[in-house]
């Protein structure tokens, strides 16, 4: 593995690489994110943004109470979010636990959703507390069941103790397993990383180790995808592109519940990483409740009336 020529796989080279990163100006990042959040997106731009956001949603159900029926309903909704309006695009992917991957893939194919991916959360999601053989087995399971995207969690304990090489090696091993079969998204759980410096460090570490996407959170912990954290990650992919000519995707997840939040994310993408990232292959939003709000806003724009949740599905 070449790791883009940035590191050679040794602890020393990784420490040098991460040590060369400049720190994040926390006050500046907060202020910049807050300023971008004030942009007002209206009429045709809003319409475009809503459809773009729908196509970027990773429609997620990660509950202990998930059932086959619920996952099937979710898949149907993923393919055709509003059955009464065929102009609504399909979402980017459905995101489920490992044991539901086969169910999801089968049902998506059944309802004409061959173009919708299945993302599996693996490596002992959400805590990441399992031994490496278990994590590998977990991932292989998901791949064999037909997952086209693997959302892995990093070992935050190792990262916070400074054992970066362990985190790096884990990502490398999972990436090797995914090969060309699946995209790899690396989840940092930024709510546990404490500082923006750590978020930046984790981003560069994961990108060098071979991540196709970097993802903020599991959705199980708050705060999750706050605007400044997403900003720091978008700056990281932008800088990584200028270093390697390689575009890495970003996936905020957790806490993005309404259209306004989603559009704020799109503004961040456009103004930070650039318009090249405004595509579902480079930007995804992990969410469950968000899709209904996007659909309701779309109805409002079509009919001129405020919509009711009674006209969209519950899950």
């Amino acid at each position: 593995m070449s790791f883009y020529g940035l590191v050679d796989g040794t602890d020393t080279s990784l420490k040098n690489y991460l040590g060369s990163l400049s720190g994040v100006d926390q006050v500046g990042a907060d202020a910049r994110a807050a300023m971008l959040a004030t942009r007002s997106i209206k009429t045709t731009s809003k319409r475009w943004a809503i459809d773009m956001a729908i196509s970027m949603v990773d429609l997620t159900t990660l509950e202990g109470a998930d059932t086959v029926g619920k996952v099937q309903a979710l898949c149907t909704k993923a393919v055709r979010p509003d059955p009464t309006d065929l102009t609504v695009p399909s979402v980017g992917a459905v995101c489920v636990y490992n044991d539901m991957v086969a169910t999801a893939r089968k049902h998506l194919d059944l309802v004409g959703g061959q173009h919708v991916g299945v993302a599996a959360v693996s490596t002992a999601f959400p805590s990441g507390r399992a031994s490496m053989p278990v994590k590998l087995r977990d991932t292989r399971d998901a791949l064999d069941a037909g997952a086209s995207e693997i959302d892995m969690v990093i070992d935050r304990g190792a990262f916070l103790s400074g054992h970066y090489i362990d985190v790096f090696n884990e990502i490398v091993a999972i990436k090797e397993l995914c090969g060309t079969r699946a995209h790899l998204k690396v989840i940092f759980e930024t709510g546990e990383l404490v500082t923006y410096d750590n978020v930046r460090k984790a981003s560069f570490l994961a990108m060098a180790a071979g991540a196709d996407f970097i993802k903020t959170s599991t959705g199980k912990i708050a705060p999750a995808a706050t605007a400044p954290v997403v900003l720091v990650m978008l700056e990281a992919v932008r800088d990584f592109y200028s270093m390697t000519q390689q575009r890495i995707g970003v996936k905020p997840a957790g806490g993005i519940r309404n259209t306004k939040d989603a559009i704020k994310q799109l503004v961040l993408v456009n103004e930070t990483a650039g318009p090249e990232w405004l595509t579902p292959s480079l930007f995804r939003i992990g969410a469950s409740a968000l899709l209904n709000d996007l659909l309701m806003q779309r109805m409002k724009m079509d009919t001129g009336y405020y919509a009711s949740p009674a006209y969209v599905t519950i899950d």
């Binding site: 001129g304 009336y305 405020y306 919509a307 009711s308 006209y311």
Partner: peptide, 8 residues
């Protein structure tokens, strides 16, 4: 008028 037309 917005109260009257609101679907919810």
């Amino acid at each position: 008028p917005w109260m009257a037309s609101h679907m919810d």
